[in-house]
């Protein structure tokens, strides 16, 4: 691990690393929900943490989470042209799956396709809330804290996402 030069102490670096360890995956996921691009997500993560480093002294522990998400949102808004987001979610490994593997693969493809179509219908703000809740299992309160919104707002976005998905999925099956 290289030690960066500057007026930051070893303690700063340790603090920085611990924040990185805690939030790397979740910020990367957030960036992925917004862009649908894994490589772009890593670039965004770097920009976000670079900003954190230069503001490390001013960022309090209680607000670091919201700080990271805010920077991530702004970075994406400012630097990356908005394109249609195409996801490529993977299914979690489930060893206890008794179904035939081929059948399972087929099912996953079908699900992914349907999910992709349905997700595309959801407005971006509701979509990222839905994904944060479903994929990362974050509670509404936790999402609210991260995005700097009220729990009511998260509920509203979630219900918007669910009703769109419901109308899409029920109709298709």
């Amino acid at each position: 691990m290289t030690l960066p030069v500057g007026n930051h102490s070893k303690e700063d670096l340790a603090k920085f690393r611990s924040i990185f360890d805690l939030y790397y995956e979740t910020i990367r996921s957030f960036a992925y929900y917004k862009t649908g691009d894994v490589d772009l997500a890593d670039d965004i993560v770097q920009e976000v943490f670079l900003k954190l480093w230069s503001n490390l002294k001013d960022v309090k522990e209680e607000t670091v989470k919201a700080f990271l998400y805010t920077i991530a949102s702004n970075t994406i808004k400012n630097h990356f042209k908005h394109q249609k987001v195409v996801y490529n979610f993977q299914k979690q490994d489930q060893n206890n799956n008794t179904e035939d593997e081929a059948d399972s693969n087929l099912q996953q493809e079908e699900l992914n396709r349907k999910l992709q179509d349905a997700l595309a219908e959801i407005p971006e703000k509701a979509r990222e809330v839905f994904l944060m809740n479903r994929i990362e299992g974050l509670t509404y309160a936790d999402i609210a804290e991260r995005l700097g919104l009220s729990v009511k707002a998260i509920e509203k976005r979630m219900s918007e996402a669910l009703s769109i998905l419901r109308s899409r999925i029920s109709y298709k099956i």
Binding site: R28, S29, Y32, Y33, V38, D39, A41, D42, N88, F89, Q90, K91, Q92, Q94, L111, L115, R134, I135, G137
Partner: peptide
């Protein structure tokens, strides 16, 4: 099933 999805892993 959506709760069993995960973000594809980082290439880096």
């Amino acid at each position: 099933s959506t709760s069993k999805l995960k973000v594809p892993s980082s290439n880096l």
